[in-house]
Nucleic acid binder design. Structure first.
Length: 309
DNA sequence: TGAATTGTTATCGT
DNA sequence: AACGATAACAATTC
Protein backbone atom coordinates (compact mmCIF):
# COMPACT_ATOMS: atom_id res chain seq x y z
CA UNK A 1 0.00 0.00 0.00
CA UNK A 2 2.52 2.50 -1.10
CA UNK A 3 1.77 6.08 -0.09
CA UNK A 4 3.88 9.16 -0.71
CA UNK A 5 6.95 8.11 1.36
CA UNK A 6 7.07 4.62 -0.14
CA UNK A 7 6.72 5.97 -3.69
CA UNK A 8 9.39 8.58 -2.99
CA UNK A 9 11.73 5.87 -1.72
CA UNK A 10 11.13 3.75 -4.79
CA UNK A 11 11.78 6.73 -7.07
CA UNK A 12 15.02 7.59 -5.28
CA UNK A 13 16.15 3.97 -5.46
CA UNK A 14 15.30 3.53 -9.13
CA UNK A 15 16.52 6.94 -10.29
CA UNK A 16 20.23 6.06 -10.68
CA UNK A 17 19.27 2.87 -12.48
CA UNK A 18 16.80 4.45 -14.88
CA UNK A 19 17.86 8.01 -15.68
CA UNK A 20 19.79 8.15 -18.92
CA UNK A 21 18.74 4.65 -19.96
CA UNK A 22 17.12 3.98 -23.28
CA UNK A 23 14.10 1.69 -23.48
CA UNK A 24 14.73 -1.13 -25.93
CA UNK A 25 11.48 -3.02 -25.43
CA UNK A 26 8.23 -2.87 -23.51
CA UNK A 27 5.89 -5.81 -23.05
CA UNK A 28 2.70 -6.47 -21.16
CA UNK A 29 -0.06 -9.04 -21.24
CA UNK A 30 -2.33 -6.94 -19.09
CA UNK A 31 -4.54 -4.78 -21.34
CA UNK A 32 -6.66 -3.29 -18.56
CA UNK A 33 -3.71 -1.83 -16.74
CA UNK A 34 -1.87 -0.21 -19.65
CA UNK A 35 -3.34 2.97 -21.09
CA UNK A 36 -4.22 3.98 -23.70
CA UNK A 37 -3.30 0.45 -24.89
CA UNK A 38 -0.36 -1.95 -24.79
CA UNK A 39 0.57 -1.43 -28.47
CA UNK A 40 0.26 2.34 -28.21
CA UNK A 41 2.44 2.43 -25.10
CA UNK A 42 4.98 0.11 -26.68
CA UNK A 43 5.20 2.32 -29.75
CA UNK A 44 5.54 5.40 -27.58
CA UNK A 45 8.24 3.94 -25.32
CA UNK A 46 10.59 1.95 -27.53
CA UNK A 47 13.64 3.98 -28.45
CA UNK A 48 12.90 6.65 -25.86
CA UNK A 49 15.45 7.72 -23.26
CA UNK A 50 14.36 8.21 -19.67
CA UNK A 51 15.62 11.69 -18.90
CA UNK A 52 14.18 12.10 -15.39
CA UNK A 53 12.39 10.00 -12.79
CA UNK A 54 10.17 11.86 -10.34
CA UNK A 55 7.07 11.54 -8.21
CA UNK A 56 3.73 13.38 -8.27
CA UNK A 57 1.45 12.35 -5.42
CA UNK A 58 1.56 8.58 -5.51
CA UNK A 59 2.44 8.47 -9.21
CA UNK A 60 5.91 7.53 -10.42
CA UNK A 61 6.68 9.77 -13.40
CA UNK A 62 9.09 8.81 -16.18
CA UNK A 63 10.16 11.82 -18.25
CA UNK A 64 10.92 10.68 -21.80
CA UNK A 65 12.33 12.43 -24.84
CA UNK A 66 8.75 12.78 -25.99
CA UNK A 67 6.02 12.26 -23.47
CA UNK A 68 5.68 10.86 -19.97
CA UNK A 69 4.96 7.51 -18.41
CA UNK A 70 2.98 7.46 -15.18
CA UNK A 71 2.92 4.39 -12.97
CA UNK A 72 0.49 4.08 -10.07
CA UNK A 73 1.15 1.15 -7.72
CA UNK A 74 -2.25 1.30 -6.01
CA UNK A 75 -2.52 -1.45 -3.40
CA UNK A 76 -0.10 -4.13 -4.44
CA UNK A 77 2.04 -2.84 -7.30
CA UNK A 78 5.82 -3.00 -7.02
CA UNK A 79 8.93 -2.81 -9.15
CA UNK A 80 11.52 -5.53 -9.33
CA UNK A 81 14.69 -5.91 -11.35
CA UNK A 82 15.91 -8.78 -13.41
CA UNK A 83 19.56 -7.99 -13.83
CA UNK A 84 21.91 -10.45 -15.52
CA UNK A 85 24.90 -8.13 -14.96
CA UNK A 86 24.42 -7.97 -11.24
CA UNK A 87 23.75 -11.67 -11.08
CA UNK A 88 27.19 -12.35 -12.47
CA UNK A 89 28.78 -10.05 -9.91
CA UNK A 90 26.99 -11.73 -7.07
CA UNK A 91 24.81 -8.72 -6.36
CA UNK A 92 27.06 -7.47 -3.60
CA UNK A 93 27.43 -3.83 -4.55
CA UNK A 94 23.93 -2.79 -5.40
CA UNK A 95 22.98 0.79 -4.58
CA UNK A 96 20.22 -0.23 -2.22
CA UNK A 97 19.49 1.99 0.78
CA UNK A 98 20.72 0.88 4.20
CA UNK A 99 18.51 -0.82 6.69
CA UNK A 100 18.10 -0.20 10.38
CA UNK A 101 17.74 -2.78 13.12
CA UNK A 102 16.56 -6.30 12.45
CA UNK A 103 16.59 -8.20 9.22
CA UNK A 104 20.29 -7.79 8.72
CA UNK A 105 22.43 -10.40 7.14
CA UNK A 106 20.67 -11.46 4.01
CA UNK A 107 21.44 -8.41 1.92
CA UNK A 108 23.87 -10.47 -0.14
CA UNK A 109 22.32 -12.70 -2.70
CA UNK A 110 23.54 -15.98 -4.07
CA UNK A 111 24.63 -16.39 -7.63
CA UNK A 112 21.88 -17.66 -9.81
CA UNK A 113 20.87 -17.47 -13.44
CA UNK A 114 18.12 -14.85 -13.30
CA UNK A 115 17.64 -13.25 -9.93
CA UNK A 116 15.53 -10.23 -9.27
CA UNK A 117 16.26 -7.44 -6.85
CA UNK A 118 13.27 -6.48 -4.78
CA UNK A 119 12.94 -2.77 -4.21
CA UNK A 120 13.58 -0.63 -2.41
CA UNK A 121 15.53 -2.12 0.44
CA UNK A 122 15.66 -5.81 -0.16
CA UNK A 123 12.97 -7.83 1.51
CA UNK A 124 13.89 -9.67 4.65
CA UNK A 125 12.34 -12.91 3.53
CA UNK A 126 12.39 -12.45 -0.20
CA UNK A 127 14.06 -15.33 -1.94
CA UNK A 128 15.98 -13.91 -4.85
CA UNK A 129 16.14 -17.30 -6.53
CA UNK A 130 12.40 -17.44 -6.94
CA UNK A 131 11.13 -15.70 -10.05
CA UNK A 132 8.76 -12.85 -9.24
CA UNK A 133 5.06 -13.59 -9.30
CA UNK A 134 2.37 -11.52 -11.01
CA UNK A 135 4.61 -9.79 -13.54
CA UNK A 136 2.35 -7.45 -15.51
CA UNK A 137 4.82 -5.45 -17.58
CA UNK A 138 8.51 -5.37 -18.42
CA UNK A 139 10.92 -2.76 -19.70
CA UNK A 140 14.18 -3.86 -21.34
CA UNK A 141 16.89 -1.22 -20.99
CA UNK A 142 19.97 -0.52 -23.05
CA UNK A 143 22.33 -1.69 -20.29
CA UNK A 144 20.84 -5.17 -20.17
CA UNK A 145 18.67 -4.58 -17.15
CA UNK A 146 15.01 -5.42 -17.14
CA UNK A 147 12.54 -3.52 -14.98
CA UNK A 148 9.46 -5.51 -13.93
CA UNK A 149 6.10 -4.21 -12.79
CA UNK A 150 4.46 -6.79 -10.56
CA UNK A 151 0.95 -6.46 -9.17
CA UNK A 152 -0.93 -9.30 -7.52
CA UNK A 153 -4.27 -7.50 -7.45
CA UNK A 154 -4.03 -5.75 -10.80
CA UNK A 155 -5.22 -2.46 -9.33
CA UNK A 156 -2.16 -0.58 -10.57
CA UNK A 157 -1.99 1.51 -13.71
CA UNK A 158 0.63 2.25 -16.38
CA UNK A 159 -0.29 5.36 -18.34
CA UNK A 160 1.48 7.05 -21.21
CA UNK A 161 0.68 10.71 -21.89
CA UNK A 162 2.12 13.56 -23.90
CA UNK A 163 0.45 16.11 -21.63
CA UNK A 164 1.68 15.75 -18.05
CA UNK A 165 -0.23 18.74 -16.65
CA UNK A 166 -3.48 17.35 -18.07
CA UNK A 167 -2.75 13.88 -16.72
CA UNK A 168 -2.12 15.21 -13.22
CA UNK A 169 -4.71 17.96 -13.26
CA UNK A 170 -6.87 16.08 -10.82
CA UNK A 171 -4.25 16.08 -8.08
CA UNK A 172 -4.09 18.49 -5.20
CA UNK A 173 -0.88 20.19 -4.04
CA UNK A 174 2.28 18.36 -2.99
CA UNK A 175 2.41 18.43 0.81
CA UNK A 176 6.21 18.62 0.97
CA UNK A 177 6.66 21.48 -1.48
CA UNK A 178 7.37 25.01 -0.29
CA UNK A 179 4.17 26.23 -1.85
CA UNK A 180 2.18 24.09 0.57
CA UNK A 181 1.86 26.61 3.40
CA UNK A 182 -0.48 26.64 6.39
CA UNK A 183 -2.57 29.18 4.50
CA UNK A 184 -2.95 26.77 1.59
CA UNK A 185 -4.06 24.02 3.94
CA UNK A 186 -6.46 26.38 5.67
CA UNK A 187 -8.02 27.14 2.32
CA UNK A 188 -8.33 23.45 1.43
CA UNK A 189 -10.04 22.77 4.75
CA UNK A 190 -12.31 25.78 5.03
CA UNK A 191 -13.65 25.80 1.50
CA UNK A 192 -15.16 22.40 2.30
CA UNK A 193 -17.28 21.01 5.07
CA UNK A 194 -16.08 17.44 5.32
CA UNK A 195 -14.72 15.04 7.88
CA UNK A 196 -10.95 15.50 8.16
CA UNK A 197 -9.90 11.97 7.31
CA UNK A 198 -11.82 11.48 4.05
CA UNK A 199 -10.78 14.97 3.04
CA UNK A 200 -7.07 14.32 3.61
CA UNK A 201 -7.38 10.97 1.83
CA UNK A 202 -8.86 12.69 -1.22
CA UNK A 203 -6.06 12.94 -3.80
CA UNK A 204 -7.79 15.82 -5.55
CA UNK A 205 -7.51 17.85 -2.35
CA UNK A 206 -3.98 16.89 -1.29
CA UNK A 207 -1.72 14.48 -3.18
CA UNK A 208 0.06 11.61 -1.52
CA UNK A 209 -1.56 10.74 1.80
CA UNK A 210 -3.04 7.27 2.27
CA UNK A 211 -4.62 5.49 5.20
CA UNK A 212 -1.50 5.10 7.32
CA UNK A 213 -0.11 8.62 7.21
CA UNK A 214 -3.52 10.24 7.47
CA UNK A 215 -4.13 8.45 10.77
CA UNK A 216 -0.62 9.33 11.93
CA UNK A 217 -0.88 13.00 10.98
CA UNK A 218 -4.25 13.41 12.70
CA UNK A 219 -2.92 11.77 15.86
CA UNK A 220 0.09 14.06 15.91
CA UNK A 221 -2.17 17.05 15.47
CA UNK A 222 -4.51 15.87 18.23
CA UNK A 223 -7.47 15.96 15.86
CA UNK A 224 -10.32 13.47 15.56
CA UNK A 225 -10.65 12.05 12.03
CA UNK A 226 -14.37 12.80 11.99
CA UNK A 227 -13.91 16.47 12.97
CA UNK A 228 -15.37 18.88 10.42
CA UNK A 229 -12.83 20.57 8.20
CA UNK A 230 -14.30 24.07 8.47
CA UNK A 231 -14.26 24.15 12.27
CA UNK A 232 -10.53 24.19 12.96
CA UNK A 233 -8.80 27.09 14.64
CA UNK A 234 -5.76 28.71 13.05
CA UNK A 235 -3.57 26.98 15.61
CA UNK A 236 -5.10 23.61 14.77
CA UNK A 237 -4.53 24.18 11.06
CA UNK A 238 -0.88 25.11 11.64
CA UNK A 239 -0.54 22.05 13.82
CA UNK A 240 -2.03 19.75 11.19
CA UNK A 241 0.18 21.31 8.53
CA UNK A 242 3.30 20.58 10.54
CA UNK A 243 2.07 17.11 11.48
CA UNK A 244 1.49 16.13 7.84
CA UNK A 245 4.89 17.35 6.73
CA UNK A 246 6.76 15.90 9.69
CA UNK A 247 5.24 12.46 9.44
CA UNK A 248 5.94 12.32 5.70
CA UNK A 249 9.54 13.51 6.13
CA UNK A 250 10.18 11.01 8.94
CA UNK A 251 8.67 8.21 6.88
CA UNK A 252 10.85 9.05 3.87
CA UNK A 253 13.90 9.10 6.13
CA UNK A 254 12.97 5.57 7.22
CA UNK A 255 12.21 4.39 3.67
CA UNK A 256 8.51 4.04 4.37
CA UNK A 257 6.40 1.48 6.19
CA UNK A 258 6.78 -2.27 5.71
CA UNK A 259 3.80 -4.14 7.11
CA UNK A 260 3.39 -7.00 4.66
CA UNK A 261 4.90 -8.74 1.66
CA UNK A 262 3.99 -5.91 -0.71
CA UNK A 263 6.56 -3.32 0.24
CA UNK A 264 9.93 -4.45 1.61
CA UNK A 265 12.74 -2.48 3.13
CA UNK A 266 11.17 0.28 5.21
CA UNK A 267 11.17 0.60 8.99
CA UNK A 268 8.68 3.41 9.70
CA UNK A 269 6.30 0.74 11.06
CA UNK A 270 8.43 0.72 14.21
CA UNK A 271 7.60 4.37 14.75
CA UNK A 272 3.89 4.50 13.98
CA UNK A 273 1.86 5.87 16.88
CA UNK A 274 -1.67 4.72 16.09
CA UNK A 275 -1.91 2.82 12.79
CA UNK A 276 -2.13 -0.91 13.45
CA UNK A 277 -1.76 -0.39 17.22
CA UNK A 278 -5.34 -1.21 18.22
CA UNK A 279 -5.47 -2.00 21.94
CA UNK A 280 -1.88 -0.97 22.53
CA UNK A 281 -1.18 1.95 24.87
CA UNK A 282 -1.01 5.46 23.43
CA UNK A 283 2.59 6.65 23.49
CA UNK A 284 1.43 9.94 25.03
CA UNK A 285 -1.14 8.92 27.65
CA UNK A 286 -1.27 5.08 27.83
CA UNK A 287 -4.92 5.01 26.80
CA UNK A 288 -5.55 1.97 24.55
CA UNK A 289 -5.65 2.83 20.85
CA UNK A 290 -9.13 2.38 19.37
CA UNK A 291 -10.01 1.15 15.88
CA UNK A 292 -13.03 2.61 14.15
CA UNK A 293 -14.49 2.65 10.70
CA UNK A 294 -14.60 5.92 8.81
CA UNK A 295 -15.28 6.39 5.13
CA UNK A 296 -15.05 2.60 4.70
CA UNK A 297 -11.51 2.70 6.03
CA UNK A 298 -9.92 1.19 9.07
CA UNK A 299 -9.07 4.15 11.29
CA UNK A 300 -6.96 4.31 14.43
CA UNK A 301 -7.10 6.95 17.13
CA UNK A 302 -6.24 7.67 20.72
CA UNK A 303 -9.65 8.61 22.15
CA UNK A 304 -8.01 10.78 24.79
CA UNK A 305 -5.51 12.64 22.61
CA UNK A 306 -8.00 13.06 19.75
CA UNK A 307 -11.33 14.10 21.24
CA UNK A 308 -14.13 14.84 18.79
CA UNK A 309 -14.89 18.26 20.21
C1' DT B 1 -13.87 -19.34 4.05
C1' DG B 2 -14.56 -14.80 3.95
C1' DA B 3 -12.82 -10.57 5.93
C1' DA B 4 -9.61 -7.15 4.89
C1' DT B 5 -7.13 -4.28 1.91
C1' DT B 6 -6.92 1.01 -1.32
C1' DG B 7 -8.10 4.49 -4.60
C1' DT B 8 -11.50 5.58 -7.98
C1' DT B 9 -15.94 6.03 -9.63
C1' DA B 10 -20.81 5.61 -9.69
C1' DT B 11 -24.77 6.55 -7.09
C1' DC B 12 -27.62 8.25 -3.41
C1' DG B 13 -29.02 11.99 -0.34
C1' DT B 14 -29.23 16.71 1.34
C1' DA C 1 -27.26 21.87 -8.42
C1' DA C 2 -23.42 21.22 -6.01
C1' DC C 3 -21.41 18.99 -2.58
C1' DG C 4 -20.70 15.27 0.68
C1' DA C 5 -21.36 10.65 2.16
C1' DT C 6 -21.71 5.91 0.86
C1' DA C 7 -21.40 1.66 -1.85
C1' DA C 8 -19.35 -1.01 -5.28
C1' DC C 9 -15.40 -2.63 -7.48
C1' DA C 10 -10.84 -4.40 -8.98
C1' DA C 11 -8.16 -9.38 -7.26
C1' DT C 12 -5.62 -11.52 -4.03
C1' DT C 13 -3.75 -13.02 0.63
C1' DC C 14 -4.01 -15.20 5.04
Amino acid sequence: MPELPEVETIVRTCRPLLEGRQIRAFASSWPKGVLPSVPAVRRALVGQTITRLTRRGKFIVFYLDAGFLLVHLRMSGRFEWADPLRAREGATNTPLPPREGAGGGSNRRRLNPLPTLPLPGGGESVDARRPPAHVRATWDLDDGQRLLFCDARKFGRIIFTRDLPAATAGLGPEPLERAFTPAVLANLLRTRRRQLKPLLLDQSVLAGLGNIYTDEALFRAGLHPAAKSDRLTDAQVRNLHESIRNVLREAIRRHGTTIDWIYPGGWMQKHLRVYGRTGEPCRNCQTPIVALRLAQRGTHICPRCQPLR
